[in-house]
């Protein structure tokens, strides 16, 4: 009995000691998201449990090693007892209960981290070997840095272009693998709560430069976030001519139409606007806005001499808005 009392006291002391030590050495990085708070609470529970169970076994073992060691010359046996079913049942049932309780807590804490807020900021994340790219579909911005407003939930929709990557910012705690495949887009939600600069690091081995697959994550307040959006949008062309230039560059028009007068599959645009051309049917037409509009949405209506009909795709009316077509016309107009 005396042994048990000493051991129990030692277990209690060591439990507190271990817990204080584990708390003291700093095991977790800064807490910078709402999810981190929930998860750290769970970590704390685990650390308590670990401290207790560690002390329990270690004290019993250490005490046995010191007190029950064989004395010199004593070749006898230890105290003879073989089993105690009551004890065995207790130390089966008690851990079972604890385990179920912990799983329950774990499930609740998981649900909390997955809490959905309707006002979440949408960001589409694309990962590839070895880069991150962030799309803000609501603003039409693409960036290699992840700018986030503080205290507003963000919903990442993530996909990969090649192998499996994993999105992890240690300060936010949560992590989600990024899979290739259109049907495997994965979502991750979190709410940054501290302003500052963090780094997203790929956490799933993705070959070669996996170690360097990092991107900055910048958490700013609402005003700064709006400023950033504006400045990003400011980089976008504002006038119709530049907008049109972007459109023709991005949609393959320049594959057939040159802008410097050199001959190609289709008529060159240099000096096109305002010129007069002979059509296949022999008529002469002036190239004005109306003519260009028709030529874009219905290219086979009036084909100029020297160029085959039926080459240019005739579905641009469906692909582009009226405004976009006007912008392209403005661009062509600017080349006269």
């Amino acid at each position: 009995m005396k042994h048990i009392v000493i051991v129990v006291i030692l277990v209690i002391l060591l439990t507190f000691g271990t817990y204080a030590l584990l708390q003291g050495i700093g095991l977790l990085p800064a807490q910078a998201s709402a999810q981190a708070v929930t998860i750290d609470r769970m970590f704390n529970l685990h650390i308590m449990m670990i401290s207790f169970l560690f002390s329990l076994i270690i004290v019993f073992m250490g005490y046995s090693i010191i007190v029950f060691r064989q004395k010199k010359g004593d070749e006898g046996f230890g105290k003879f007892f073989k089993a105690n079913n009551k004890l065995e049942i207790i130390w089966t049932i008690l851990p079972l209960g604890t385990v179920i309780f912990f799983s329950y807590l774990g499930a609740i804490s998981l649900a909390e981290t997955r809490n959905v807020e309707p006002q979440a900021l949408n960001v589409d994340v694309t990962a590839g070997q070895w880069y991150w790219s962030f799309d803000y579909p609501d603003y039409g911005i693409t960036s290699d840095k992840l700018y986030l407003p503080v205290d507003r939930q963000v919903k990442l929709s993530m996909t990969s272009v090649d192998v499996i990557h994993s999105f992890w910012v240690p300060e936010f705690r949560v992590k989600q693998d990024v899979l290739p495949g259109e049907n495997l887009v994965k979502e991750l939600r979190f709410t940054p709560t501290e302003k500052g600069e963090y780094t997203v690091r790929c956490a799933e081995l993705c070959g070669g430069a996996h170690a360097y697959m990092n991107s900055p994550v910048i958490v700013v307040d609402d005003a700064e976030f709006t400023d950033w959006i504006d400045s990003e949008l400011g980089n976008l062309p504002q006038d119709p001519v530049s907008k049109g230039k972007r459109l023709v560059e991005n949609n393959g028009c320049l594959g057939c139409h040159s802008v410097d007068g050199s001959p190609s599959v289709g008529p060159t645009w240099a000096g096109l606007f305002g010129s007069e051309n002979v059509m296949l049917d022999g008529s002469i037409k002036e190239v004005n806005e109306d003519y260009l509009h028709t030529a874009i949405v219905d290219p086979n209506f009036d084909v100029p001499e020297g160029f085959p009909a039926g080459v240019m795709p005739s579905n641009y009316a469906d692909l582009f808005s009226e405004e976009e077509i006007q912008n392209m016309i403005s661009f062509i107009q600017s080349l006269k």
Binding site: L28, T38, H46, M49, S103, S109, R173, V174, A203
Partner: peptide
């Protein structure tokens, strides 16, 4: 003893692949 923190999902979100 270091297993359960990686066995509960929410804490494993932090610990996985570290």
């Amino acid at each position: 003893l270091t297993g359960p923190p990686s066995g509960t999902v929410s804490t494993d979100l932090h610990l996985h692949d570290t």
